[in-house]
Amino acid sequence: MDVIFENLPLYWEGFLRTLFLSVVSGIFALILGTLLAAARVSPVAALRGFSTVYVEILRNTPLTIAFFFAAVVLPRIGVKFEQFEIAAIIALSTYTAAFIAEAVRSGVNSVPVGQAEAARSIGMKFGQVLSLIILPQALRTVIPPLINILIALVKNSSVAGAFFVLELFGYGRQLANANGDAVITVLLGTAFFYLLLTVPLGILANTVERKVAIAR
């Protein structure tokens, strides 16, 4: 246990970095994912096509490939960034957005079609139907699955550790290398800090699920 307490500042720094990566990527992914879902249900065929291709590619390839593209390929085609952290955020948010798009789309499909028809029949345009009627109802049903996706995002952020970003897992690995006799303790400590983020999210998902259910 000593190895954990002695290195608490390192753990804490890693924890904050993981938190930062997750929150920033999570926000970008939510925005991008919602836009992709909107494109997927839009009347414009080109938008639907783009969204479908995007989601299918990102959802069906490993996250490490997204990281590889962001960290290695993007700089080669002229997108430069000072820190690998930016690459990590790009990879995590583009990858997670695909899952969020699918969750939001299923939520949109769960709203009875009559809601959209009623909105259209009082003269609302597509954007209004979506933003005022469909999404507010869809988001309530997708909040629990969205939180599950965010939990996965927190865990997925550990891949950044392999791409030179010192977050929780990155520090954990450093510590494990430095303390060969206490690898298990070090890893348990790392796991504990992940749980510190993911367990409250899980509890939140349950609470929200009970609170926001709408009566029909």
Partner: peptide, 20 residues
């Protein structure tokens, strides 16, 4: 189309009031 629909009121079999 949206503008024209605004001039045409519609009442559905299943009411379709905005549930939220």
């Amino acid at each position: 189309l949206a503008q024209l629909r605004a001039d045409v009121g519609m009442v559905f079999q299943s009411f379709n009031l905005f549930a939220h």
